[in-house]
Write a protein that binds this DNA or RNA. Structure first.
Length: 361
DNA sequence: AAGACGGGGTG
DNA sequence: CACCCAGTCTT
């Protein structure tokens, strides 16, 4: 790694950073204490997710599941509902598995050593370092995107931060930079600086407490850092979905499998089908073969465009007429709107749910 | 080492 | 529209 570590005055860096953090840190619900469970939940929610988005989810999660024991015994439906709309749903399935293990194998106490804590589902190098430092005051690095951006500028690191190797190099530099400062404050200060001042587009160098320790600032290249490889464009998937109601006004929904995209979430029956081909016939064949449901696809009533990080769904939604569902199979069920509201749907299918709700109103 | 895995906010 | 966000797991 090419960095100018020897060029940075560590004592001045620590003093300036911590003084700034003590004055400028935000009041956040997971900062009211250092309870390891609360810190852990916040760190998982915050993965790839903005603070403002997380706050309401976090508050509700802590109302529903105040302790590891409460969460461990929760039903899967409620666990998924707690995460509905947050994305990256494997986070909550892994967290549930991990907290159950904490209750069963560690007496409900979150492990305070790296080996045990890191072995839990969904706990990677960042989360391990964050919880051990923030909740247990251990001098572990917690290197996230904010920290890499700040340090790539302060230390003038030009390596690609999307590479795993680069993150490890930053982790090796942290102990020296952290020195004898309180680990919880130091790590959070670095992240807070990245979130509030040392931002991606136009960093607020004039307001920055460590601008005189920043190599990129000295050379005027802060805008060019960090270096990050480009992502490829998401692939397009054309889908057809259908709304089918039975004689009692209940509609048919399906639960996705336990692996892959949107695992364990509920959805309207749908299949990949190019809009140029006959989507209606594809849908009818799919329903009969996969769910044992005979129905006729009628007019299209809605079009849903949904963008994921790696693909785009273009869903044409049809209205269906039920003919026969005596031999229903697959993970399907008929639900009322009230029942559906207790289940977790991906945002793309919440849009379809909304259409039905408006029709019924 | 690269790709899968969500959703929303920003310039 | 492109990029980013308190990353981890699988292949």
């Amino acid at each position: 790694m090419s960095y100018y570590h020897e060029g940075v005055d560590e004592n001045a860096f620590q003093d300036n950073l911590l003084a700034w953090y003590r004055e400028n840190q935000r009041e956040l619900p997971w900062r009211i204490n250092q309870d390891p469970y609360r810190v852990w939940v916040s760190e998982v929610m915050l993965q790839q997710t903005r603070v403002e988005t997380v706050i309401p989810y976090y508050e509700r999660f802590m109302e529903w599941f105040p302790t590891p024991e409460d969460f461990a015994k929760a039903e899967e439906e409620k666990v998924m509902k707690a995460w509905e709309g947050l994305g990256y749903y494997s986070r909550v399935r892994n967290l549930h598995t991990a907290v159950k293990e904490v209750v069963e194998s560690y007496g409900g106490k979150v492990p305070d050593n790296k080996k045990d804590f890191s072995s839990l589902k969904g706990v990677g190098p960042y989360t391990a370092g964050a919880v051990l430092s923030i909740a247990y005051e251990q001098p572990e690095p917690a290197v996230d995107g904010n920290v890499m951006r700040v340090l790539s500028r302060v230390l003038l690191v030009t390596d690609d931060i999307s590479k795993g190797k680069t993150r490890k190099q930053f982790e090796e530099v942290i102990p020296t930079l952290m020195g004898g400062t309180p680990p919880s404050e130091f790590n959070q200060a670095l992240m807070e600086l990245g979130a509030l001042v040392c931002t991606p587009k136009s960093p607020g160098c004039l307001l920055c407490p460590v601008q005189s320790q920043c190599e990129a600032r000295k050379q005027g290249v802060q805008q060019e850092l960090p270096v990050k490889g480009k992502k490829k464009a998401p692939a397009l998937k054309e889908m057809a979905a259908i709304i089918i109601k039975d004689s009692k006004g209940k509609f048919l929904i399906h639960q996705r499998g336990s692996k892959g995209l949107l695992a364990r979430l509920w959805e309207f029956p749908n299949t990949e089908a190019e809009a140029t081909s006959s989507q209606k016939v594809d849908l009818e064949t799919f329903l009969k073969e996969e769910y044992g449901v005979e129905a006729a696809a009628g007019d299209s009533v809605q079009n849903v465009q949904h963008v994921f990080s790696h693909l785009v769904w273009d869903i044409t939604v049809y209205e269906g007429t039920l003919k026969n569902a005596d031999e229903i199979k697959g993970n399907c069920k008929w639900v009322t709107m009230e029942e559906a509201r207790k289940l977790a749907f991906p945002v793309s299918h919440q849009k379809i749910l909304k259409t039905i709700e408006e029709e019924e109103a």
